[in-house]
Design a protein around this nucleic acid. Structure first.
Length: 327
DNA sequence: GTCCAGGGTGGCG
DNA sequence: CGCCACCATGGA
């Protein structure tokens, strides 16, 4: 089925799906080959999400979509949605981001990040996929994470065919739990053995249902974070990514090297931090608490604007390869 | 060849 | 606590 609807809020589809929170959007061919962050000849990008295949392109304020099914099961809400409603949910188009503008007036760098990247939305993705995906994110690049997730999916899931293309949905946690270390180690371009072990271990300890019990509507941020970091191989950063990019804990504030650079450059006095030799547990917590205190439920969104800005030439004097292909 | 990428753990002072 | 070595891929 196909459709088209108008978006009445700031939204840049392309920026959003290449902003390092999702790794599945791009072009696919008939053999199931995947090219992250690339649109096809007609301007569509595709992804297998929530059990369906979506193709999307944006023309100004209009979203044009194709979908392999007419309705989508959404675990976050425990109900089905039609495709347009799902797309609005998936990209959080209901979030009143204009509230952020008032909060960032007194900080020029954040205001600049917001004005430039307010079209970047925090997405609401599947919890099992985000958990396993970010376990593979350790000291890795966005592009290589995307390749890893695609290979894992091709290895363990049954393909879906749509629009003349072949897609591999993200495999279930049960499927990952039942696979072997050797199989994954041999086929996934992952740097550390510990990441493979952590993925299998997490999949054995959690069902998808367990993870959704950590949803924003069920437990508070602190409790959810404490619970997630009990998983072997899942630390504070990965936990924050799961909470922010799937479970709607928008006060989560993941700190990676890009965010750390922004903090070092613009926030040392605000947060009253000593020179950052290493990112200790205490400092990580202080940074998150500062942004939560200042931006409340929008802290995670502000984090994403800062992340986007830091990966841009004007945002920071960065190493060249941080503006990697696909962006 | 070099350096770096959306980390986590364990060990030592 | 804070800091550091280690792990061992792929791209620029």
């Amino acid at each position: 089925m196909k459709g088209r609807f108008r978006v009445e809020v700031p939204f840049d589809f392309y920026l959003t799906v290449t902003s390092g929170q999702s790794f599945r959007w791009g072009s696919y061919d008939g053999e199931g080959n995947f090219s992250y962050g690339r649109a096809d000849d007609e301007g569509f990008m595709y992804a297998p999400v929530f059990g369906v295949v979506l193709g999307i392109k944006q023309e100004d304020s209009y979203i044009i979509y194709k979908a392999s099914d007419s309705r989508v099961w959404v675990p976050h809400r425990r109900r089905y949605m039609d495709v347009e409603e799902f797309i609005r949910f998936y990209f959080s188009l209901d979030a009143p981001v204009e509230e952020i503008e008032a909060l960032v007036q007194d900080k020029p760098e954040v205001l600049r990040a917001y004005m430039k990247y307010r079209g970047v939305r925090i997405m609401r993705q599947e919890a099992n996929e985000i958990l396993i995906t970010f376990i593979f994110s350790a000291q890795n690049t966005v592009k290589n994470i995307a390749r890893t997730v695609h290979r894992l999916s091709a290895l363990l899931s049954h393909p879906l065919f749509f629009d003349g293309k072949k897609f591999y949905p993200f495999p279930s946690l049960e499927k990952i739990a039942g696979s072997s270390f050797e199989l994954l180690r041999k086929n996934l371009p992952v740097r550390f053995d510990s990441r493979i072990e952590a993925a299998i271990s997490a999949a054995r300890h959690y069902s998808a249902r367990d993870i959704y019990n950590l949803h924003h509507s069920v437990v508070d941020y602190g409790t959810a974070h404490e619970t997630l970091i009990q998983l072997k191989g899942v630390g504070r950063k990965i936990a924050d990514c799961v909470l922010l990019f799937s479970l709607e804990h928008w006060e989560a504030f993941p700190v990676d090297v890009h965010i750390r650079r922004m903090v070092e450059r613009y926030y040392m006095e605000d947060i009253n931090l000593p020179p950052l030799k290493s990112l200790t547990d205490r400092v990580y917590r202080m940074i998150g608490e500062y942004f939560r205190g200042r931006y409340g439920r929008w802290a995670g969104w502000v984090q994403q604007y800062l992340y986007s800005l830091s990966r841009t030439p004007e945002g920071e004097e960065l190493s060249r390869n941080s503006i990697s292909s696909g962006l």
